[in-house]
């Protein structure tokens, strides 16, 4: 089953929520707030608090977007779940490395690896 919101396309896949970000540029405060609200709603409704966030379409993000990711990660961890990001381009990986958020937020090579990491079935 998949659902499409304004900024996120969501698919539920056996214990994991896959959310694909649909904006190329995640810079505007309003857009970031709306993405946060959309993923919050998905997480609140989901039976499983594990989420794979797909960055395949994202080229730029701002420090405010990093804040939204930190908050989302904390919410998921509070429910004993987790967040794993996939398809993160090199430039955005560099942003995570510089801010040392690569120590806090998980990234995986692909969907299967992310799923294995979240469900512990590697």
């Amino acid at each position: 089953m998949s659902q499409e919101f304004k900024h996120v396309r969501v698919r539920h896949d056996g214990g994991v929520v896959e959310a694909r970000l649909l904006d190329r540029h995640i810079l505007d405060e309003l857009v970031i707030r709306e993405i946060g609200e959309e993923v919050d709603r998905v997480v609140a409704d989901a039976p499983s608090p594990s989420m794979i966030l797909d960055f395949a379409d994202v080229e730029h993000l701002s420090s405010s977007a990093l804040g939204m990711l930190i908050t989302l990660n904390s919410r998921l961890q509070d429910r004993e779940g987790g967040l794993c990001m996939i398809n993160v381009c090199d430039s955005i990986c560099e942003v995570f490395r510089i801010t040392r958020l690569d120590k806090v937020l998980s990234m995986a090579e692909d969907y299967a690896s992310a799923r294995a990491e979240l469900l512990g079935d590697a």
Partner: peptide
């Protein structure tokens, strides 16, 4: 913002970037 104790704070990374 890269100090261990600040890593999970949601803001304050703009100038650092």
């Amino acid at each position: 913002p890269t100090a261990e104790e600040n890593l999970t704070i949601a803001s304050g990374r703009g100038l650092s970037l």
